[in-house]
Design a protein around this nucleic acid. Structure first.
Lengths: 140, 140
DNA sequence: GTCTTGTTGCAACTCAGTCGCAAAAGTGGT
DNA sequence: ACCACTTTTGCGACTGAGTTGCAACAAGAC
């Protein structure tokens, strides 16, 4: 949960050769302060609170650039629009509550292991994967 | 692999109270004859070969209707557009070859079981899920 | 400071998918 | 076979997320 032991997003951007502009600073800071998985519109709204005047096209472009450099992860749950999160040190998958849209992270090493086995069996190397489980609160 | 033991899509449509129109017949037939996961544009192209003159808006609407009734499954891999397949008797997940876009189906009861366990642990009931593994052919 | 190159704002644009509406066609009852 | 009722279709206009061309601007390197 504590990120202070690792590089900040800004440091990793610089390391990737990206210029640290004022809009990017604001976007990166917002991303690091977000525990959830905002879409571009929501992100733009949050960014605008700490740095007004940034165009939403800039947010779109920045998200693409960051994703290309592997600094953030792009998700597209069944609501259609892309949603993002700062790349987590620990890979995890998602429960999506279909009643509220809320996203809960989880991880299962067992599932990861079985995936590797399966891919090998089919003659593949895994590039990435994504497991989304749509759920509702258990009643009873 | 052999579907003759189960209801056809058309029969299931009728059972769902949907009208069997000429455009729908062509679309259903095309769906049943598709082993892959076409998007609407590709589907429309295929449908047009056996029944020209069907508007693509009709294909969009039909796919929505069928999906709402649970007769087909909608997927959205990372290429953005929605892709469909006739609902399979056996649930399966997908390998997506990132080099070619090709989709390979697989199934792991072990993964299904672990998902159930996990969901229960978090206090959820699973509505549906989706596991996409992006891969490349193994070299060596 | 100067130069080079990456980045931004803006407005125009693309593209998948949706929608309103009037015409057409399926289904159930007789 | 016909009617009445309701769903579906074609069409064109529209929406909304995301992209792009371009001129102005600003980071970083020297």
């Amino acid at each position: 949960m504590n990120k202070s032991v690792k590089l900040t997003l800004t440091e990793r951007c610089r390391h990737a050769g990206l210029r640290i502009t004022a809009p990017r600073k604001a976007i990166l800071k917002t991303l690091e302060g977000s525990e959830d998985h905002p879409n571009v519109e929501e992100l733009h709204r949050r960014v605008s609170r700490i740095a007004p005047g940034i165009n939403i096209a800039t947010v779109y472009r920045t998200m693409n650039t960051l994703a290309e450099h592997g600094l953030i992860e792009r998700h597209s749950f069944s609501d259609g629009r892309a949603r993002y999160e700062a790349v987590p040190e620990d890979h995890h998958d998602h429960f999506i509550n279909v009643e509220t849209g809320e996203v809960v992270e989880f991880r299962s090493d067992e599932i990861e292991r079985i995936q590797e086995e399966l891919a090998r069996k089919y003659g593949f190397d895994i590039v990435s994967h994504r497991l989304d489980i749509y759920v509702k609160p258990r009643k009873g």
